[in-house]
Design a protein around this nucleic acid. Structure first.
Length: 912
RNA sequence: GCCCGGAUGGCGGAAUUGGUAGACGCGCUGGUCUCAAACACCAGUGGCAGCGAUGCUGUGCCGGUUCGAUCCCGGCUCCGGGUACCA
């Protein structure tokens, strides 16, 4: 087989030494990324290079955190390395700046997919979870991310969720003191005398009604497909479950709830101080939904009851022509007139069957019934009818409204449909006379500003006529309070947080329900309450958790022989992620949640990077828990995350037909920049879309690492565009960063290019410019332009075909946060030993940046015409002389006497 | 509907926030190397006109402020995200 031998020799000589491109360039050393990356990953692991020490003597600490992943079976997708590389660059940079850096990683490993898989196959979710974590860990390590793996945590580990349960107990044993505006231990709750007199049960009830965590009947969303209850936040606006997309239904079940609205005001105010994207803050503000207005009491004709309404526009009271109660309003039964009772009951029960979807989307068409009862408008003592309609929600305000059809779109629509009075009391500030006339006559709704009309009652001493809206609200609110008809009031949209799930794979509640109806919590010293092993993971049809099948685990008897049953619900996935950032501080501590000295040192998180999809839920819940822990003196900062940054989504190409039907990416063939369906030959349009299994356009980072190396992948993802932008993944572009790294290696690894003398002045200036740019850009998280600056430097150095050892070592350090493996390799090649991870970050020297002349652009009438070399800081008069003497300028000026605008060291503009 | 973002070459994106529009990269064109190709290297590359110097034009659209506008103001169009009977 002579051929084969030849082939082998050929390979040895020509191929193996040139791994990236099978070419031959004499003795030139070429970039072999897989060898280099393997070498340094082993080095870091063996030397525990990135182990973080709780070195309190270094006052400069930096806690940089990723949103830890749910380890799905599919492994990483290219979106993960984006955020992880960003934080890794910052972590490595800060280490070199002398900071003590905490940069940990862990797993948000409770969750539905592992349980779904258990239902199908009987595999214990813990097995699935561990397997997935192993895959994620391997993939993340292959990216060269500098985590301290000794701090790895896993939310499903009993040693971790012991403390999740511990926090739940704290929540249960905390009440909110509105006087001092903070959460306090339930033992400090003052009990009113009358409650004490009423006995033990009343006292218990009183206390329970104040706890931040409580157990109660709740109208909740239930997903029949997942057989799970959902938090309001998990139900999309079209009434479908965000996890599975199936429609959810209403159920009434006993559930654990958390009183997050008590913290609404502080959660809102706290946003001001945070360095978060404005958009995210705005989303949280909207979610909290603060509004100011007034509660106003309306007397009901023929009854002692009053109807309390909440309104943000008490100033429109004179225009209130009817009232509406929500179908769930408790007064309906009492005040409905006997002749209307049947119809009203029918409407109420129909409404209760409707999903919120029907009550919102479809209900652009308003429905409602008259109760036969009248209320009295307190500003003019006019009788106004009381209706029931499902456009009023029980969960907001008081569940009842005063309707002002002339100035509220919803009320207007309703009034038009049922022929109710529409009285305009606000003359709009518009010029369109026809529209104005329609509004004044009540034929059109006006919700904008204006001047009051028909808004006075001298008998009651109130007039708004002639005022503007701001004055009007102030005047009427004062009047209402004086007359004791109601009071100023602040309302929030934020509701109690439904905190239990009918699931197996979550944190068990440390709770026992006793036969006598009482509830006790597990003693802290008996934590964790662990999950029992099960044969069957299937939930019950009634929405009962699979834990109700674990009979041995389920039933308990106390020392008095009282029988009880453990809570079978488990906590939602948010629970573990609400505080994981705290556990990273002291992950192995089994006597405390964490050492508070360490907490004081490391907190708060200085930089938190993750996807914007967690804008409201995770980030609001975590802030809430953190504030409670702060109130209880467990943590030292009010807010957990000082700076937040959202990386944009990475999209990928997808293909669709002329009619918009999507075609899976493995069906595509490209010809001359056009795209065709392989099978049908139909021409397709290339679009960018979210990566999804169904479009088969998911990019697997493993493949990219294999083909180009981790450093190139990291660089490419950062070079794609601004971190926060949504960017399309186009594999063609990866050659840019790949070539850059190969060229850098080629320059520095080949010793004939390295000198020990004086650096070329042009290279030196370029180097210091690059140091400055890269430093600024890392601080500002502008990695794309930092990389471009390094490319510019490399191009400059390559032109000279040589570089000093010193410059090369500076470049190695600048590059290392972005491409850490190659950075280390180049550091070694420039004659250093060990790692550069803690070598000082280069500092740009002004003396090399200074230039004495610059190319000054000269524009004529604002249009750049030519450039002229000028000394820096030349006095304006001199510049003027030079410009006027220049023949290129004279060509434009001619005989005119021009005005010359000189922006020092920047531009000259000749105005003719 | 409301609230936030966006819109710059064939493509991803730069532009010190009022001062040279298109950095850097991809792609493309031409060249060197090669038997040939790939790789690598060199040169060019917004559009229109011209052999050329050069000129005109150009940052979604219309208008304004300014010596000068991708940037500020007014009015639109389209795209993305959030949210929605929250009184």
């Amino acid at each position: 087989m002579p051929h084969r031998r030849l082939q082998l020799i050929f390979n040895k000589v020509f191929l193996i030494s040139q791994p990236i491109s099978a070419n031959f360039r004499g003795n030139m050393k070429e970039y072999n990324f897989s060898e280099i990356e393997k070498k340094w990953q082993e080095y870091w692991e063996k030397n525990k290079t990135f182990k973080t020490h709780d070195d309190f003597s270094n006052p400069n600490k930096y806690y940089v955190l990723d949103m830890y992943p749910y380890p799905s079976g599919a492994g990483l997708h290219v979106g993960h390395p984006e955020g992880y590389t960003a934080t890794d660059i910052v972590a490595r940079y800060k280490r070199m700046k002398g900071f003590n850096v905490l940069h940990p990683m862990g797993w948000d490993a409770f969750g539905l997919p592992a349980e779904q898989y258990a239902i199908q196959t009987g595999t214990h979710p813990a097995l699935t979870t561990n397997k997935n974590c192993d895959t994620f860990r391997r993939q993340i390590k292959e990216l060269g991310l500098s985590y301290d793996w000794d701090r790895e945590i896993n939310t499903t580990d009993p040693a971790y969720f012991k403390w999740t349960q511990w926090i739940f107990i704290k929540l249960y044993n905390t009440w909110y003191d509105h006087e001092t505006d903070r959460g306090r231990s339930i033992e400090e709750l003052p009990i009113p005398q009358d409650v004490i007199k009423a006995g033990d049960d009343a006292r218990k009830e009183y206390i329970d009604s104040r706890r931040l965590a409580y157990y109660d009947n709740a109208q909740i969303w239930y997903c029949p497909s997942c057989r799970i209850v959902c938090a309001n936040e998990e139900v999309l606006t079209d009434g479908s479950h965000e996890k599975c997309g199936h429609k959810v239904v209403r159920r009434n079940l006993k559930q654990w709830m958390l009183r997050i609205p008590y913290y609404a005001e502080r959660l809102l105010r706290g946003l001001e101080k945070l360095d978060w994207p404005e958009g995210i803050k705005e989303m949280q503000r909207n979610w909290i939904g603060r509004s100011t207005g007034a509660e106003v009491d309306f007397k009901v004709e023929g009854h002692d009851d009053i109807i309390k309404v909440y309104t943000t526009r008490p100033d429109t009271l004179f225009g209130a022509t009817y009232m509406v109660l929500s179908p769930e309003h408790p007064l309906i039964g009492k005040i409905t007139s006997p002749d209307r009772l049947g119809e009203v009951q029918e409407y109420v029960s129909a409404a209760s069957l409707k999903s919120d979807l029907d009550r919102t989307d479809l209900a652009k068409e308003k429905t409602g019934v008259f109760t036969g009862t009248w209320a009295v408008n307190p500003v003019n003592n006019k009788k106004i009818p009381v209706w029931v309609a499902d456009y009023v929600l029980m969960g907001y305000g008081t569940g009842a409204i005063m309707a002002v059809p002339a100035h509220d779109e919803r009320d207007f629509e309703f009034a038009m449909k049922f022929g109710l009075d529409i009285i305009c009391i606000l003359s709009p500030d518009i010029t369109d006379a026809e529209q104005k006339a329609r509004i004044i006559s009540g034929r059109e709704c006006w919700s904008g500003d204006g001047i009051y009309v028909n808004s006075s009652n001298s008998d009651l001493g109130i007039t708004l006529d002639g005022l503007d809206v701001e004055e009007g609200i102030e005047t009427i609110t004062r009047w209402i309070e004086q007359r004791k008809l109601g009071s100023h009031r602040i309302n929030y949209k934020l509701r109690d947080w439904l905190f239990s799930r009918q699931r197996y794979w979550g944190e068990p509640f440390p709770v026992i329900h006793w036969d006598d109806g009482r509830i006790t919590l597990t003693d802290e010293k008996d934590l964790p309450v662990t999950l029992p092993d099960l044969e069957v993971y299937e939930p019950g049809d009634s929405g009962e958790s699979p834990l109700s099948n674990a009979t041995e685990w389920l039933y308990v008897t106390d020392s008095q022989g009282r029988r009880g049953r453990r809570e079978t619900n488990t906590m939602p996935q948010w629970a573990g992620s609400c505080w994981y950032y705290l556990r990273f501080i002291d992950p192995k501590n089994d006597t405390e949640i964490f050492d508070s000295r360490k907490e004081k040192y490391w907190m708060p998180v200085d930089l938190y990077i993750g996807g914007a999809e967690h804008a409201v839920l995770h980030l609001l819940y975590a802030r809430f828990w953190h504030m409670v822990l702060f109130d209880l003196g467990i943590v030292s900062t009010v807010e957990p995350f000082m700076k937040l940054f959202n990386q944009g989504m990475i999209l990928a190409f997808a293909y669709e037909t002329a009619t918009g039907a999507k075609v899976s990416s493995d069906q595509i063939t490209e010809k001359d920049g056009r795209f065709f369906n392989k099978e049908t030959g139909e021409e397709l349009r290339q679009i960018v879309a979210k990566m999804s299994k169904s479009l088969k356009n998911v990019i697997n980072p493993d493949d990219v690492v294999k083909n180009y190396g981790a450093d190139t992948l990291r660089l490419f993802e950062m070079f794609l565009g601004p971190l926060e932008a949504t960017k399309p993944w186009d594999e063609k572009g990866i050659r840019g960063p790949a070539n850059f790294l190969a060229r850098a290696y080629r320059l520095i690894a080949n010793s004939e290019n390295i000198t020990d003398g004086q650096e070329d002045p042009e290279v030196l200036r370029s180097l210091h410019k690059t140091i400055r740019k890269v430093t600024e850009d890392i601080e500002g998280l502008r990695f794309n332009t930092a990389i471009s600056a390094m490319m510019i430097f490399l191009n400059t150095a390559l032109k000279k075909e040589k570089i000093t050892r010193e410059s090369a070592s500076v470049f190695a350090r600048l590059l290392s946060p972005f491409a850490p493996h190659l950075g280390e390799e180049l550091w070694q090649l420039t004659g250093h030993e060990g790692t550069l991870a803690y070598e000082p970050w280069p500092v740009a020297k002004e003396e090399y940046l200074k230039e004495d002349v610059f190319e000054c652009p000269v524009s004529v009438n604002g249009k750049m015409r030519f450039k002229i070399e000028l000394p820096v800081d030349l006095p304006q008069e001199e510049v003027r002389k030079i410009i006027l003497a220049d023949e290129r300028a004279r060509k434009w000026i001619g005989t005119a006497m021009p005005k010359i605008i000189i922006v020092p060291n920047r531009i000259v503009n000749i105005v003719i």
